[in-house]
Simulated assay, not measured.
Amino acid sequence: MNSLAQAKEPPVQVVYRFDDHRYLELKGYDCEGELWYTDTIRGIHTEPVSQFYRIFTRKFVHPSERYIAITGWGVGGFIVSRDHGQTWQSVGFSPGPNEPNGDDYAPREDVTSFTVVNDQGFLQTKHSLYTSSKPFEDPRILPGGPGIPYTLENGKVQVLEAQYPGEAWGMVYMTKLGLEGTTQILKTNWQNLPDHVPEVKNYQGWDHMRCAMDAGKAK
């Protein structure tokens, strides 16, 4: 079979740059396909999303290096890494009601920006701020810790223990409304969350993802 008859490899294009050594690549046609993360200094090249990824089109600012969080076109959740991009996990919104109408997620049309700074993510919508927790675990719910006692409405005392500590840091996004009445709010890494997205100064990366729809197509 000659080269002209062989299947053509899908195009690969850089769709986001965090800085001079970290970037995201999309492999596929029509701005949809595999998403790859590369860190040239640490020698990391991993695949956060294996297929059907479509870029996030709102403002995106991401100076954070250890905690990396990516969302896509539909903003239905997040793909996150807590180890500089070596491994990835899917993360959702809180199971509780984050929105005034009772929904647990932010509607795509309401999202205005996503910022990841100091190992913490901030998704801003028209009327809410979704955040991940501060980037550490409450020592009271680590193995060997005393646990966190709390009192139910009926007066019964319970203890949040290391065996069932709830979501790990960075692995769920909540609004302050969504935190109310949950055990997450008992932990120190969910205390004193900001009401606004922290200011990012001197950011060297892109502030939006970019994608050429006609990449790889014959002119």
Score class of each variant (00 low, 15 high):
Q184I: 04
L177V: 04
T125I: 05
S113F: 06
T175R: 07
G121K: 04
P48L: 00
N189C: 05
L26W: 09
W36E: 11
T40R: 15
N118E: 07
V80E: 08
I44F: 02
S81Y: 05
Y203R: 12
C31W: 03
S113L: 02
V15K: 13
I185A: 12
R66M: 13
P63S: 13
R108F: 05
S113E: 13
T182M: 10
F18H: 07
D110S: 12
G33Y: 01
E199R: 15
F93K: 05
N118G: 00
G76C: 06
Q13E: 08
L35W: 00
I44P: 00
T183C: 02
N101G: 03
R58Y: 11
I79S: 10
S94N: 10
D138R: 01
I41V: 14
P10Y: 08
L35F: 00
P165A: 11
G102A: 00
G85A: 11
K156I: 09
E34P: 06
T182Y: 10
K187E: 06
W73I: 09
W206Y: 10
P97R: 09
G33S: 07
V15W: 07
E9I: 06
R17I: 06
G85S: 04
F18A: 12
F136I: 09
G85V: 01
I185R: 15
Y173E: 01
L186K: 02
A106M: 00
R66T: 13
P100N: 04
L152P: 03
V14C: 02
L35A: 12
K8I: 12
Q191R: 07
N101C: 05
N154P: 02
A215F: 03
A212D: 14
G216I: 02
D83I: 04
